[in-house]
Design a protein around this nucleic acid. Sequence first.
DNA 1: ATCCAATACTTGACTAATTCCAGAATCCAT
DNA 2: ATGGATTCTGGAATTAGTCAAGTATTGGAT
Lengths: 147, 147
Amino acid sequence: MEKVTDTTDGVDQLLRQHKVQVTAQRLAIMRAVSSRPHATADDLTDDVRAVIGSISRQAVYDTLGVLVDKNLIRRIQPSGSAARYEDRVGDNHHHLICRDCGTTVDVDCAVGEVPCLTAHDDHGFEIDEAEVIYWGMCSPCQTESKK
Amino acid sequence: MEKVTDTTDGVDQLLRQHKVQVTAQRLAIMRAVSSRPHATADDLTDDVRAVIGSISRQAVYDTLGVLVDKNLIRRIQPSGSAARYEDRVGDNHHHLICRDCGTTVDVDCAVGEVPCLTAHDDHGFEIDEAEVIYWGMCSPCQTESKK
DNA sequence: ATCCAATACTTGACTAATTCCAGAATCCAT
DNA sequence: ATGGATTCTGGAATTAGTCAAGTATTGGAT
């Protein structure tokens, strides 16, 4: 019997490197996040079910939590919508989100490397992340709203 | 009979200027937001009830929605906690939020005036706001977690 | 190759925040 | 004062996510 946890795309290696136990669910979720960036937990659940048949909602949330913890994926939480996940980590990029349709695209940091991460006055906080979200309207929605 | 909608603090004027119908509830909510920045809808409901006796949850959400729409207040929506409201609008300041306890403080823009508002590549979007959230741990929570 | 303890997954109920709905009340321009 | 538009009320519904307990799978030790 072939083990599900041996892969040819190296996802299993990646997980092991980060000391994450390898399971069919985790592999499927990793791939789902990679292939559909900025998806919600719900979207990902659908994607994963299409591939491995079934998975519980709990397992999805649980796994996403672990992957975020281990820095394998990043969670972004735009106002007014469910959390979204992406596999571009550690490159200090930001997001541009359409107020109307929620479309999310990546934007490189406007300032440079990591100055975003330095607040003027840290109020005694130990800051570990600066999240930047640009809000606006994508071109389809712009034309739509002019009708 | 005196009308509740005539005020001495000018809040009614402000509402009228923005074409928002003036009601006792709205006045109370406006004042509550001003006097307790970064409060949640729930906090505000309590505050308002303490002042005008009673208000429905709906009216609170509805009013906050209207005020946000009319740009009289700003809504911020941190991960894992309810939305918060503040009356500092239009000055491009940002927020520093504790991952542990949710404490939220204002931070002036790290970069200057409005460069934050300029993304590298706007992908055809019409951008109207740049939201920056610094995530970290406030000092009380830092000491707490070291125990 | 097999076993076992640790870890992960499933099910199903539960919570918190927010929104929807439809009727009643209130506001304000005429 | 009146009518039409807007707002308020209370309850029910939805959404996003969490908790808890039992079952299954994984990976290291034998």
